[in-house]
């Protein structure tokens, strides 16, 4: 299956906290696409908010985003935008 992968940095000073994580899940739900965070050895499905939170992704963390499915490009674009912002979604 074709997939997209991009390396991103967490720009929100508070890291990936509740509101950021729930926004990720919303993106994953809004498109016909899968969204995974790849960090260290694990790949986490962004639909699982507690998994995402429990990774403890702080400000400045570099990670990879992997999207797949019919609308993987759109999903990736929105995730990129989310990670580039300093403000809470």
């Amino acid at each position: 299956m074709k997939q997209l992968e991009k390396e991103l940095t967490v720009n929100n000073p508070n890291g990936v906290h509740g509101r950021v994580a729930s926004h990720l899940a919303r993106i994953a739900g809004a498109y016909d696409a899968t969204v995974h965070i790849v960090y260290g050895k694990t790949a986490i499905d962004c639909n699982a908010i507690l998994d995402v939170l429990s990774m403890g992704l702080v400000y400045g963390t570099r990670l990879k985003i992997r999207t797949g499915g019919r609308e993987m490009k759109k999903a990736m674009a929105e995730v990129e935008q989310l990670f580039s912002r300093r403000e809470d979604p």
Binding site: R19, A21, S22, H23, A25, A48, L50, D51, D88
Partner: peptide, 13 residues
């Protein structure tokens, strides 16, 4: 948006 994240948590596996 805090409530949104709580709704997601209820569903969480």
């Amino acid at each position: 948006s805090i409530i949104d994240s709580h709704i997601l948590m209820i569903h969480d596996r």
